[in-house]
Amino acid sequence: MSTLQDTTNEVLALASTHFKVPREQLTPDDDFFKKLGINSLQALDLLTRIEQHFHIELPDYELQGVSDFRTLAERIQSRL
């Protein structure tokens, strides 16, 4: 069973790889919209990759108001 820290690290790695931002520049409390420079359309792309990576279904309304990696990881963790 993955811990929240494991999940957070996986999300950071996923975002780093997909959006080509160096991993060391990303921290759990970062606003991913700002840090990755993405809009809501690209956030949906991130959601798709998260669902595929973790083999979960994450309704997008669960992400309303979520903008930092840590909270995103918490939402994922509750579906694992």
Binding site: N39, S40, L41, A43, L44, Q64, G65
Partner: peptide
């Protein structure tokens, strides 16, 4: 000004 403003 967002691409899909009705989404989170």
């Amino acid at each position: 000004t967002d691409a899909l403003p009705y989404l989170p």
